[in-house]
Design a protein around this nucleic acid. Sequence first.
DNA 1: GCAGCTACTTGCCAAATGGCAGGAAATCAC
DNA 2: GTGATTTCCTGCCATTTGGCAAGTAGCTGC
Lengths: 197, 197
Amino acid sequence: MTQEKLRKFLQANGLINAQQAEEIARQFVPKEIAQHDFLLREGRVCDEYLFLEKGLLRAFAHDPNGNEVTTSFYKSGQVVFEVSSFFTRVTSQENIQALTNCAGWCITFQQLNALFHARPEFREFGRSVLVQGFATLKGRMLGMITTSATERYEQLMKTTPEILLNAPVKHIASYLGVTDTSLSRIRAAVTKSAGHE
Amino acid sequence: MTQEKLRKFLQANGLINAQQAEEIARQFVPKEIAQHDFLLREGRVCDEYLFLEKGLLRAFAHDPNGNEVTTSFYKSGQVVFEVSSFFTRVTSQENIQALTNCAGWCITFQQLNALFHARPEFREFGRSVLVQGFATLKGRMLGMITTSATERYEQLMKTTPEILLNAPVKHIASYLGVTDTSLSRIRAAVTKSAGHE
DNA sequence: GCAGCTACTTGCCAAATGGCAGGAAATCAC
DNA sequence: GTGATTTCCTGCCATTTGGCAAGTAGCTGC
C-alpha cells in the first residue's frame, strides 16, 4: 500500500512540489470501503475528505416523495466528500455509498484545516479542488438544459463507462434526470443504432 | 456612498468581526454598471469580485447551436463573479450583464489573493462564499431533476420576483430549462389558477 | 426444485414539452 | 407621428418523457 498515486494527485495541477506532496500525503490514512457500505449517511456530518484510488461510489439524496436521486458518481482519481456538510459542519442530506470495493486515502476536517492553515500551497490545492467541482457541476447543469436525455446518457457512458457495469439502471436514470423506464428505452435505441455502424 | 452594507455582509456569517470588516472593506472600490452593460464578456478572464449592493444581473453562456442559455441571476446582497475563470485565470465561457443599473463594491483577483494570504478570517469567508454557491447550485440541480417546470417557475418567482420585472421571458425560460413558448403557457396557467384563490 | 425477490424490458396510453407560425402589443429609432 | 423590431401569447401538431402493468430473466435462500 503506497501513497504514490496520492502524491501524484497532489502534484497534478502544479501547485505542490514533490517534497511538499510527500509531507502532506503523510497526513492521510488509508481507507477501505466494502461494496454496499457507506462513506457518509444522511443526517450525519461529513468528516472525511477521501482521495479515491480504486473503486466507484455513488452519492444520493431523497426527493420530497422519498425517492432516491443519484446526485453524483465518483471514480478513482477523484476526491470524495460532501462539500457543504464537510465545510459548514452541518448534517448531510446526502448519502455516499460504495458501488464496488473501494480504497483510498483520507483526512478529517480538523486535519485538513490545520494543513490549510500551515501550508499555503495546500490551501491553493484545496481551492482548486472546490473550483473544479464547481465547474463540473455547472457543466452538468448546462448539459441538463441544452441536451437530450439520450445525449446525456451517451456522454456519461463515454466519460465513465464503468458506471454501466456497477450501477443499476435506476441509479443512472435519476442521475440523468429521467425515469428508469425511459432510460431503458434510450438504451435500447442507442444499442440498436450503434449496431448499425 | 457608504460601505455599510458591504461591512454588514462581511460580518454576516460570523467569521469576521466589525473591526476586521472595516479594514477589509477598505480594499474594495465602488463599481457601477449601467443597464445592458457587461461585467464580464466571454473570452476574457474574470478579474472582478463584486459585492452587489443594488440591481440585478444575469449570467449566460451559449449552447453548441449558439443559443443563449441563462446560467444565473444575481440580486443585491450577493457576490457576483465567474468562479472558474476568476480563480483559474482562464477565459470565461460566460457573460455577465446588468439587467438594471447596478452598484456595488469590487476587488481584483490580485487584491483578493493578497487578502486571503494576509487574513485567515477573510480566507474562511471566501471559502464560505464558494461553498454556499456550490450548495445553491446543487439544490438547483436537484430541483431540475425532481420538480416540474411549473414548480421551478413558481419557486423562482417566490425567491426572486424582481426577475419577472426585469428579464424577458426567454431569459427566464432558459434558466429554468424550458423554451420560451412553454414558459409562456406555464405563466398563463399559473396566473389563471392564482386568480381562482 | 420452488418461491420470492430484484433488475430490466416493453406495450399502451397520458402528460409534458417543443417547433413553428400567426398575431397582438409594447418598444425603439428616427 | 410611422415603420421596424422585439416581446409575448396561443393554436396546431410532433416529439419526448412518464405512469402503469405485464412479462422475462437472473439471483437467492431453503
